[in-house]
Structures are given as structure tokens and as C-alpha cells.
């Protein structure tokens, strides 16, 4: 476990020495502020619209950061051959996978914190209310969502050769689940025969990432989510991440590493 933490430290260092996060953060802030400058009269409707835009941008940026950072981890180690001196040390491949996961997850958690801080300040100054716990729930669920995403991309990065194709495939699948995941079951019951059954099977096996998207509750100032539900969603997400990581390790474990 200590090795995994040492490895995650390197991932985090890489993250803050690269420019990706800053660029996306500045973009998010700029677009939101430009949108916000339209709101002169403090109209309720417009504040809501502003919050919607800001949260959407946060979701897109966080997803891009998490997917692209994770997708390049192991391929870059192999390409730049740093994996050789690294694995020549007493590090197991399981620790390598765990360390990469931990690093990407902690780093994207730090990014989320910055994003949501900005969101909180923005909406707080407009609405003069500070529903800190609601925002914390949204951030927490978002972070758990990213755990599943990062574990899936890490699995993809040992299965697919090219990091760019891995990132694309993962993004398509994740966005597909976000939009369609919740509806599959309803569609399935309307389709008779084998295709319907297959759809139901898919519905019950995919990770339901759409549960973690609680932006609507925030923009519409809904009350807090039941904490038990939050806890269950956390367990569900971390369980899924663990399964994906174990799969990734199983693929990577016996892989021949040469140039």
C-alpha cells in the first residue's frame, strides 16, 4: 500500500505540473462569468440558468481531465520506458495499478474541490444562500462517479494499445451510460423476445453512473439527499471500481513488457 501511495504522489505531481487542469479551469470560469454578466437584474430564472451552465462545464471538464490523465498513465510509462526501472524495484504490478488509480482519483478530487469552490462562491454571491451540505453531497457523488470512470479507463489502458482510442471508447461508453443508462430498463420491457432480455441484462450489469449526476437537485434548490442513499451509492461505486481494477490487474499481471 505504501508503494501505491508513492506512485500516486508521482501522478499528482505530474497533474499539477501539466497545464490541462488550469486551462480547463480558466475556461470554465471564463465561460461562466461571461454567461453571468448577462444577469443584471438578479432574476431567479437567470441564476438557475447560470448554475446549470457552470455545473455542466464542471462535469465536462472533470470528465475530460479524469479520462485523459488516466488513459495516458500506463501507456506513457511503457512508451517512455520508465516502467522498466520502476518494476525493477520491489513493486508488484497490483501496486502499480492501485497507485495509478489512487493518484488519478486523488488528483481529480483536488480538481473537483477547486471547481466546486468556484461554483459555491458564484452561486452564493448571487443567491445569498450557502447550502454547503448540498454542494458537498454533489461533490462527493461526483468524486465517486470519477472513481468508477478512472478504474474503467485504467482497465481500458491495459486492454487497448493506443491511449487515444481507449479515451474515445471510454468517453463514448460513459456518456452513453449517463444519457441512456436509466432508460434501458423501460425500453427493455417494451421490446419482446431476446433483444429485450439482452437489454435488461445490460441494464443490470452496467455501472449506473447516471445516479451520481445530481445537478438538477442543486440547480432547483432541492433538500438534501438521504445520507443513507449517499452511503449506498458510495459503496456501489467503490465496489464497481474495485471490480474494474481487479480486472485491469488480471490483464496486466502476466503481460510481457518489452519495447
Amino acid at each position: 500500500m505504501r508503494n501505491a501511495f508513492a506512485l500516486s504522489g508521482v501522478v499528482i505531481k505530474e497533474m499539477y505540473r501539466r497545464k490541462d487542469f488550469y486551462v480547463l479551469f480558466v475556461l470554465t470560469v471564463l465561460i461562466t462569468l461571461v454567461m453571468g454578466s448577462i444577469n443584471i437584474f438578479g432574476d431567479n430564472q437567470i441564476v438557475r440558468y447560470l448554475k446549470e451552465i457552470c455545473l455542466l462545464l464542471i462535469w465536462i471538464s472533470a470528465l475530460i481531465i479524469a479520462v485523459t490523465t488516466t488513459a495516458r498513465q500506463i501507456p506513457a510509462e511503457r512508451e517512455s520506458r520508465t516502467i522498466f526501472p520502476l518494476l525493477a524495484k520491489p513493486v508488484s504490478r497490483a501496486e502499480l495499478v492501485a497507485g495509478k488509480f489512487l493518484g488519478c482519483w486523488l488528483a481529480s478530487g483536488a480538481c473537483l474541490l477547486v471547481f466546486y469552490l468556484f461554483f459555491g462562491v458564484l452561486s452564493g454571491t448571487r443567491e445569498h444562500s450557502w447550502p454547503v451540505l448540498n454542494y458537498f453531497q454533489a461533490l462527493w457523488l461526483h468524486w465517486i462517479f470519477l472513481a468508477v470512470v478512472i478504474a474503467a479507463v485504467l482497465l481500458g489502458s491495459v486492454v487497448f494499445a493506443a491511449p487515444s482510442s481507449n479515451a474515445t471508447i471510454c468517453l463514448v461508453v460513459i456518456i452513453g451510460i449517463l444519457f441512456l443508462g436509466g432508460h434501458l430498463n423501460r425500453v427493455a420491457t417494451n421490446i419482446p423476445g431476446a433483444p429485450g432480455t439482452i437489454l435488461s441484462v445490460i441494464y443490470f450489469t452496467i455501472p449506473h453512473l447516471e445516479w451520481y449526476d445530481v445537478r438538477d437537485l442543486i440547480t432547483h434548490d432541492r433538500p438534501l439527499i438521504n445520507w443513507v442513499a449517499c452511503g449506498l451509492a458510495t459503496l456501489y461505486g467503490l465496489g464497481y471500481s474495485t471490480i474494474l481494477l481487479i480486472l485491469g490487474w488480471a490483464v496486466f499481471r502476466r503481460k510481457t513488457l518489452t519495447l
Binding site: A6, K13, E14, S80, T82, F84, P85, A88, P90, L259
Partner: peptide
């Protein structure tokens, strides 16, 4: 073991001191 690979390699974003510190942590 100490191992020197055939071809050079480096983490683009680390300096030598940081690299050695990272590897040292792995050796506890």
C-alpha cells in the same frame, strides 16, 4: 537489485532528486 536499462528513460516532469526520492520510498 540495482538495474540500469538498455535505453534511457525519464519522467518528463521530475528532476533527478525527486526521481531518486520516489525510488527510495519504494525501497522503504
Amino acid at each position: 537489485i540495482g538495474y540500469l536499462p538498455e535505453l534511457t528513460y525519464y519522467y518528463k516532469f521530475l528532476n533527478t532528486e525527486e526521481l531518486l526520492r520516489f525510488y527510495g520510498t519504494i525501497f522503504r
